[in-house]
Design a protein around this nucleic acid. Structure first.
Length: 242
RNA sequence: ACUGCCCU
């Protein structure tokens, strides 16, 4: 059930997900923490925070206590709606309630801070993460680098990248995508391709964002021939455009 | 592929 419910939730098909939840009860199965967390996250990703919190209330009443994953999903929902203050307040509340916000929880908030250009607050959250006994990971750095790039502070973005590598973290495909996107937005097409080549040389690394970022950038740049050429190259390699 | 964070 959990796997299928997750499938529906990730497709935004929450009616189907909740109806499966109902089926579970009918057939005498007890939904567990994962079942509830999956649906709550689905609601949050749809921006339906009322539904999410109401299910959160139901699960407690049915004897399944929410955990930090539950609350992180809700915090992310608030963040994605730009409701930072409420998200921060919820962070405080769950800490007081005895839950232990972890790297993912902090990353959620850090990402939204960076998207809003609130880099001071982001750094404060990193501090707080350390104080709580957790360390940043590549996602933390990617969120910061992306925020700095989008704020067009490439200087600081580079510094953050160096800091990340000096600290022993390997850039991943998202790091490269972020940097490629930044280069393209600056019109630095050559450098974008250099990054792409590094990525391609790692063989496995591409994700769906990678070619799309390049194509967007090339088209925005008016470089339609290069875009067409790139698509042809993809097709020749057997990549299917989405 | 049992649930939460970063990139078009």
């Amino acid at each position: 059930y959990n796997t299928i419910i997750d499938g529906f939730s990730k497709q935004g098909m929450l009616e189907e997900a909740t109806s499966l939840l109902g089926n579970m009860f009918k057939r005498g199965y007890q939904p567990d923490i994962v079942t509830y967390n999956t649906i709550i996250d689905g609601f949050c990703k749809q921006g339906k925070l009322e539904e999410a919190t109401s299910l959160l209330g139901n699960m407690s009443r049915r004897g399944v206590q929410p955990d930090i994953v539950t609350y992180t999903a809700v915090i992310d929902g608030l963040c994605k709606q730009g409701r930072m203050e409420e998200a921060m307040k919820l962070l405080e509340e769950v800490s007081i309630m005895g839950f232990c916000p972890d790297t993912v929880t902090f990353n959620t908030l850090i990402d939204e801070c960076c998207k809003q250009g609130r880099f001071k607050e982001a750094s404060r959250l990193v501090e707080k993460m350390y104080e709580s006994g957790f360390r940043p990971n590549v996602v933390t750095f990617n969120a910061m680098i992306d925020g700095l790039c989008k704020a067009r502070d490439l200087q600081k973005a580079e510094e953050m990248l160096e800091k990340m590598m000096k600290a022993g973290y390997e850039p991943n495909v998202v790091t490269y995508n972020v940097l490629m996107d930044a280069m393209l937005k600056e019109g630095r097409v050559e450098e974008a391709f250099e990054i792409y080549n590094v990525l391609a040389s790692k063989g496995y690394a591409h994700n769906v964002y990678t070619p799309n970022i390049l194509l967007h950038g090339l088209c925005k740049d008016g470089n339609l021939n290069a875009a067409m050429e790139f698509i042809d190259g993809m097709l020749a390699k057997g990549c299917i455009p989405d």
